[in-house]
């Protein structure tokens, strides 16, 4: 669960994550406050890249997106 926890932290913590789901290769998440998202920490946690548009962030993680989204949802729920 280390990676999932690192990503949650980089996204500003569980309370900042409004919604997170997986696509084939990326996590799509809606955050409450995009200003506190730490892109460097996301990359340090293994993200290949981050795309953001307002409150919607895409964290590019490759094929493990599905498993990571499940882990993250387990932790933050």
């Amino acid at each position: 669960m280390g990676k999932a926890e690192d990503i949650i932290k980089a996204l500003g913590g569980a309370e900042n994550i409004d919604e997170i789901e997986a696509c084939a290769t990326r996590l799509r998440t809606v955050v409450n406050n995009p200003a506190i998202v730490d892109e460097k920490a996301l990359k340090a946690a293994g993200a290949f890249g981050v795309l953001s548009a307002g409150n919607v962030l895409q964290v590019i993680v490759g094929g493990e997106a599905d498993g990571l989204a499940m882990d993250i949802n387990d932790i933050i729920e």
Partner: peptide, 10 residues
């Protein structure tokens, strides 16, 4: 889609 166009995945 910039994820692909910018080769973020590879």
């Amino acid at each position: 889609d910039p994820m692909f166009a910018e080769a973020m995945l590879g």
